[in-house]
Design a protein around this nucleic acid. Structure first.
Lengths: 323, 323
DNA sequence: TTGTATGCGTTATCAA
DNA sequence: TTGATAACGCATACAA
């Protein structure tokens, strides 16, 4: 492998001059610059980035920790990161953790080992405090809101409120909600919104641990088995909404006549099924997270709220006045 | 940042011994080994991977070139790669190219610059020959079939034949097909299958440039505008099938009674819409591609065919005998 | 404007 | 079983 020393020899200059040419630095005589460029061509030289990394102390690479790379909204965040990273000539390493704490620690270790200059944490199960203990090795940005931490986040409380309010304005007062992972930050915020706006005490219509299409089907079973049923359900994701709707339609129920359903994400599924949903600009989250983690002044945490919007479809409707 | 020299000093051994301990090499006295481990703890030492990369000449990182990280089946391949990479303690860098040739060249350059040890090319628009000119810098594995090249691939010809044959067995003989990017390898194979099995000459029912849900809607318009319509359409993706089906159902047409539709991918959409589709184990493609690109003996290209299977749903049905 | 010399942190060779 | 020392390839302070 030819290196800058070979180039220097070939072009009859010093390695410093070669390095200057390589990095477009000033103070190089045009003649020598040309000589170096010729040598590069002649020897077929290609710069070794690893050496650059070691020498400069940075990798121009950031790490991304997420539970699943192929879940639509994680993938959408990833695509935002990919876009921004490419534009800034950055690289990114992705770790799929499946929410396993030991996997998440691998990611943190990578930061400490200088494999990446910073970390974007899309979602995690480790305690925030443990994660933050790695901040000494480089900037860490969350895609969820945490105190004293740089984050790009959806305000799940207000986002959920948007859906719940919309349902109430449609005349619903018996409203159920789906929640995702128990005890996750998001679930807590959503539950709070529910208690504040709809049911201060009861949890009869709170369907927990719903993440996937299958979970939506499970919610349908549960709903069917209930004597007192909600007339509307605010879900955690378009997937859950889809599973729920499909299952009920198969049983002959009509959506939204028999049950109003609001999704969450604004995904392809929402488009296909014409779901009423809370649309989230996930790619934007990725882009903002990238710009936060790569900004040069990391003196203090910065928090950016990303807006969620109610997207009208045909799965939530006025409650029949008969009710 | 504390380094192995500091450790050596602290533990009263040489850097070689420290390195040996770090890498679990034999020939280290138990006593010294312990001394080094204590020093590591005391000084809070963490190994700098960049230095390891430079010294060993490899990064234990592979690169992934794909057009879009958030398209379901690309994401699924990515998730397979992520899984395998994690298991083997490898990293992967992802580049989203949008099929821009200049972006694709960036990826190739990264291989040449030793940022990655090898490359998985999920999909590309550059000429294969140009890509292969970079093979001198490291192994390159394609997720499409090309001659003389390591590839993990779906045989799109036989996969499409499965769908077409199924339609014929259902009594259809007026069959249309959707194609994706014009002149792509896959499109050619699919068109060939169509000409061999269904319509040797006519292209009236060949709908080109269909990739997205919107494209499916466009196909619906086209189909509606035709005097002579096919009774069944084999599509390029579940997305296209979904767009087509939804658009037609909105117009009052019944699927599969008025038109049989077969999707492609076996995605979430297929599940939700109960599509008859050709299911592809995309994650498996990613896993196999990873194992190919990281195998140590790269003497000759290896090609692995991944099976596609017809997955029954309710969007393709027997042609009414009235027809 | 140019070059020398040193450092980045590790692994690997070779001699002891 | 251990240790000096030379790579690995590049960037950069400092001197000229």
């Amino acid at each position: 492998m030819t290196n800058i020393r070979d180039l220097a020899h070939e072009a009859n200059v010093s390695v410093t001059t070669v390095s200057r040419v390589l990095n477009d630095h000033p103070y190089v005589a045009e003649e020598k610059r040309r000589a170096v460029k010729e040598a590069i061509l002649k020897l077929g030289y290609i710069r070794n980035q690893t050496a650059v990394h070691l020498s400069t102390g940075r990798t121009k690479t950031i790490g991304v920790m997420l539970p699943f790379v192929d879940h639509p909204y994680h993938a959408a965040i990833l695509q935002g990161i990919a876009k921004s990273a490419f534009e800034d000539a950055y690289r990114f390493l992705t770790w799929q953790t499946n929410y396993f704490e030991e996997h998440e620690r691998t990611v943190l270790r990578a930061l400490a080992q200088r494999e990446v200059d910073g970390l974007i944490i899309v979602s995690h199960s480790l305690a925030v405090s443990e994660i933050l203990s790695y901040e000494q090795y480089g900037p860490i940005v969350f895609c969820e809101l945490h105190e004293y931490v740089s984050s790009v986040y959806i305000n799940h409380y207000t986002a959920f409120c948007k859906g719940l309010t919309a349902l109430q304005q449609l005349g619903h007062h018996r409203i159920g909600i789906c929640l995702g992972r128990a005890d996750s930050t998001n679930s807590r915020a959503r539950k709070q919104a529910y208690h504040d706006l709809v049911e201060p005490n009861s949890n009869d219509w709170v369907y927990e641990q719903t993440l996937t299409i299958e979970d939506g089907t499970r919610v349908a079973e549960h709903w069917l088995s209930q004597k007192q049923r909600p007339s509307a359900i605010m879900t955690t994701s378009d997937h859950v909404a889809a599973g729920l709707i499909i299952a009920l339609r198969k049983r002959g129920y009509r959506i939204p006549e028999d049950l109003s359903v609001i999704g969450f994400d604004g995904s392809d599924l929402a488009e296909v099924l014409d779901l009423t949903t809370i649309a989230i600009p996930y790619a934007l989250i990725g882009q903002q997270a990238f710009s936060l983690v790569t900004r040069d002044v990391m003196n203090q945490p910065l928090q950016i709220e990303i807006p969620a919007t109610l997207q009208m479809g045909n799965t939530a409707a006025q409650l029949p006045s008969a009710d």
